[in-house]
Design a protein around this nucleic acid. Structure first.
Length: 276
DNA sequence: CTGGGGACGGGGCCC
DNA sequence: TGGGCCCCGTCCCCA
């Protein structure tokens, strides 16, 4: 398998803001060669490997760290054009500034939780680990809270949401769920209400046009980090999700699911054997 | 039918 | 315990 793989050319009209002027960003030069995984190594697995990372919470996603603990093998990143080695300047999307843009690797390793997990594993000591799944926590109370998630739904400790009756074995999870019935965060513009402040924040971006999450490969910006992540996957030529019926492959699980619903498994007795 | 993006909800984890 | 942050996943729409 070649070390680099090409990314399909993005549509020229892909920029999202209707009526917005062409963005003055300067996309990276083609061929958009991305770091290729080792043979037999899934791209996402490769990029998502939480090999440890200096955590820096509360500052949003940092740009590609100068010295990430995520240390890929030399031969895997020998290409100087590799996005891994680049962190582009801030882009502007119409009137809204893109505050951060992410290289492929920087993006995939800036999972705050993964970073912390990686580091905690590296640190090793003074962590409270769960005997059932091995996850570690900084405090015994955090571990105790986590342990609740291992309870069975049949457990006497299970409690039901008074509003919808959904059962939870973890009290924090129940508390969180109960909040979803309380839509107290209301949009001043359209009146839509949300259960959590950050859901409202994300929603407000649809009014303001703010797109803080930029792709450093093509300059495209997104209001939602999840959407940037999905977009990042489109830069990969690797398609990890294979239809068990016709063996067609897809870059995103959602595409495969759509395929199952629409094509191969339509009217079939086959249940959706979704996997990757 | 596939590819891609926008919007959003649920829930886990940290402090 | 609660707030904040984040990821995963889904639904919907459009090209």
């Amino acid at each position: 398998m070649p070390r680099s793989f090409l990314v399909k050319k993005l549509k020229a009209d892909a920029f999202p803001l209707a009526g917005a002027p062409a963005p003055p960003y300067a996309p990276l030069e083609p061929p958009y060669a991305l770091p290729g995984p080792a043979a037999g190594d899934g791209y996402l697995q490769h990029c998502l490997a939480p090999a440890g990372y200096n955590p820096d919470k509360k500052q949003g996603l940092p740009p590609a760290p100068p010295d990430p603990a995520y240390a890929p093998g030399q031969e895997e990143y020998s290409d100087p054009e590799s996005p891994q080695s680049t962190f582009s300047a801030r882009y502007f999307n119409g009137e809204a500034a893109v505050t951060d843009s992410y290289s492929m690797d920087a993006f995939f390793i800036t999972d705050g939780r993964s970073r912390r997990r990686g580091e905690s594993q590296r640190r090793g000591s003074h962590r409270h680990s769960c005997p059932e799944c091995g996850k570690t926590y900084a405090t015994s109370s955090n571990l105790s809270r986590h342990k609740q998630t291992h309870r069975s739904l049949d457990s006497k400790m299970a409690r039901k949401c008074p509003t919808c009756g959904k059962a939870y074995v973890s009290m924090p999870a129940l508390a969180m769920h109960v909040l979803t019935h309380n839509l107290k965060h209301k949009c001043d513009v359209c009146g839509k209400a949300f259960s959590r402040p950050w859901l409202l924040q994300g929603h407000m971006r649809s009014h303001t046009g703010e797109k803080p999450f930029g792709c450093s490969h093509c300059g495209k910006a997104f209001a939602d980090r999840s959407n940037l992540r999905a977009h990042m996957q489109t830069h990969s030529a690797f398609k990890h999700y294979k239809c068990k019926q016709c063996e067609k492959t897809f870059a995103l699980k959602s595409y495969l699911n759509k395929h199952y619903e629409s094509a191969c498994f339509k009217g079939s007795e086959h249940s959706c054997a979704i996997g990757n």
